[in-house]
């Protein structure tokens, strides 16, 4: 009799544990960028005039909690996919003076703290505080971003920020002065995220 009760209790606890796990995995979501509907662009400057570029390969992964509050944001950028609209410039920016993609093939952003600026049912504004690792150098950056529900299983995040290329040793030696090629680089993104829960 006692043994039966023990087994039932164990079973009940196990079921409750499973239930919670299932419940959480349904309500805490993970999201993944869709390569086809996402853009990561940057604007450098030359003689004070803008030159546009983009990364053709990158991925964004995000997590949200039960209340679809953004809790984690991770970005990986494949540096060799940088495209500035000219084969000459594209080759130049991959060299050691610039991105040095031979040694540092990826840039990685990992959020450490998601600050909520405003939030309604379908839209939210966040500031993702985190660390950007680029060309082997890590710097804390703050990425302001908007979060828009595009349907229950799809959101679009977008934002822009300015980085200083000298913080990451991009453009060294003769290029270090911002005289010809400006130090400030405007980065902007619009990324479609799809819910990826199993």
């Amino acid at each position: 009799m006692l043994l039966m009760k023990m087994r039932e209790k164990c079973l009940a606890i196990l079921m409750a544990l499973f239930g919670t796990l299932i419940y959480q995995s349904v309500l805490a979501d993970s999201w993944q960028s869709s390569a086809l509907s996402s853009d990561l662009e940057f604007i450098a400057s030359y003689q004070g005039l803008p030159i546009n570029g983009r990364f053709n390969r990158f991925s964004v992964a995000a997590n949200t909690d039960q209340a679809t509050q953004l809790t984690q944001l991770d970005v990986r950028v494949f540096i060799s996919s940088a495209d500035m609209g000219s084969s000459e410039i594209n080759q130049a920016i991959q060299t050691t003076d610039w991105f040095n993609s031979g040694d540092f093939s990826e840039a990685i952003f990992t959020s450490q703290h998601l600050e909520t600026v405003s939030r309604t049912e379908n839209n939210a504004e966040y500031i993702a505080h985190g660390e950007l690792q680029l060309k082997g150098l890590k710097n804390s950056i703050a990425v302001p971003l908007s979060w828009k529900n595009n349907g229950s299983d799809q959101v679009v995040i977008a934002g822009e920020l300015t980085l200083d290329r000298s913080d990451f040793g991009i453009g060294i030696g003769d290029w270090a002065s911002g005289e010809q090629i400006g130090l400030a680089v405007r980065v902007s993104f619009a990324v479609q995220l799809d819910r990826t829960n199993e």
């Binding site: 030359y46 003689q47 004070g48 803008p50 030159i51 000219s86 410039i89």
Partner: peptide
């Protein structure tokens, strides 16, 4: 076509 913007004599875009 090479996507090189230029300011002529560092003055005129």
């Amino acid at each position: 076509a090479a996507n090189f913007p230029v300011k002529l004599f560092w003055l005129i875009p």
